[in-house]
Computed example of a mutant assay.
Amino acid sequence: MKNETTIGIDLGGTRIKAIAIDANGKILHENYQPTNDGDGSVWKNAVATAVKELQQILKTEKIKIGLSAPGLPDEKNTCISCMPGRMQGLENFNWTNFLQQPTYVLNDAVAAMMGEAKFGAAKNKKNVVMLTLGTGVGGAILIDGKPYQGAMNKAGHFGHMAINDEGDCDVTGMPGSLEECIGNCTVEKRSKGKFTSTHELLDAYKTGDVFAKEVWMKSVKQLGIGLASIANMLSPEVIVLGGGITQADDNLFLPLNYFMKQYEWQPTGTTTKIVKAIHGDMAGAIGAACFAMSKE
């Protein structure tokens, strides 16, 4: 890897995280700006402000930038080409032209995976799958050390794989998807209105609430079936899990490993290793910077 400093930006719904990292993954500087999602001109200018402030600290006029954002990037990773419903003004916005710096744009889950693969829980691994478990379920794939984005750059959307063909359709029209099974967006529906968040559900689960245990274990079982399916198809060295739901720690990972052993095809007698992401909400910015760093 070249000895260079790169800026990574994670454009989130509430906060813009911008960092400068060196070639060894050390975060040299950090900058945070509010997103103000309702006004596109505000958050675009906030990104520009973050870049300018970091450049002033670094004392450089030209620098490569990686930008992590929700949605699907275009073929050349110059912009987000598809992001319906929110972040108005993001679609087809050319960041290189706006920032006057070479800027490479990628999906936020792909960026998180890049951060974990380069300097995190999957360091030195060449074939990796990552899922982000939060409001919804995102995902990304690393093949032979490179992010696999596929046709239309939509590869890795594991949240939209079907687990139950008789289940409700998710936002893409997929019935009984993994996102419907474990995403925070469906907790109230899955618990028949008793819980409004995964955090509430887990609090009740920890106290021995029978109904909470039934709901949670069903969700983890369905996640295990989904991960076993992914492992059977892609055979990664490791599956990395990130996102807020992973804060459940052993209450998630212990039963999940049990279900993986139950459902995954194990021709050598071993199951795919599942690990927790280590970069937390900084993974997107770190991964975006890594992606830009890999560009000539």
Score class of each variant (00 low, 15 high):
Gly8Gln: 01
Thr14Leu: 02
Ala18Trp: 00
Ala23His: 08
Ile27Met: 15
Glu30Ala: 06
Pro34Tyr: 10
Pro34Gln: 12
Pro34Lys: 12
Thr35Pro: 09
Ser41Ala: 04
Val47Asp: 01
Ala48Ile: 07
Thr49His: 10
Ser68Met: 05
Thr78Cys: 10
Thr78Gln: 13
Thr78Ile: 05
Thr78Ala: 13
Met83Val: 11
Leu90Ala: 00
Glu91Cys: 01
Asn94Lys: 12
Gln101Ile: 03
Gly120Asp: 09
Asn127Lys: 12
Val129Lys: 05
Met130Arg: 00
Thr132Pro: 03
Leu133Thr: 03
Leu133Met: 06
Thr135Ala: 05
Gly145Trp: 05
Gln149Ser: 14
Met152Pro: 00
Asn153Trp: 11
Gly159Val: 07
Met161Phe: 11
Met174Gly: 07
Gly176Arg: 04
Gly176Thr: 05
Ser177Ile: 08
Thr186Cys: 02
Ala204Pro: 07
Phe211Arg: 10
Lys213Val: 03
Lys213Gln: 13
Glu214Thr: 14
Ser219Gly: 09
Lys221Gln: 13
Lys221Ile: 01
Leu227Gly: 06
Ala228Pro: 02
Val238Cys: 02
Leu241Gly: 01
Phe253Arg: 09
Gln262Asn: 15
Gln262Leu: 15
Pro267Arg: 13
Thr270Gly: 11
Thr271Pro: 04
Lys273Ala: 07
Gly280Asn: 11
Asp281Gly: 05
Met282His: 08
Ala289Gly: 15
Ala292Gly: 15
Glu296Tyr: 12
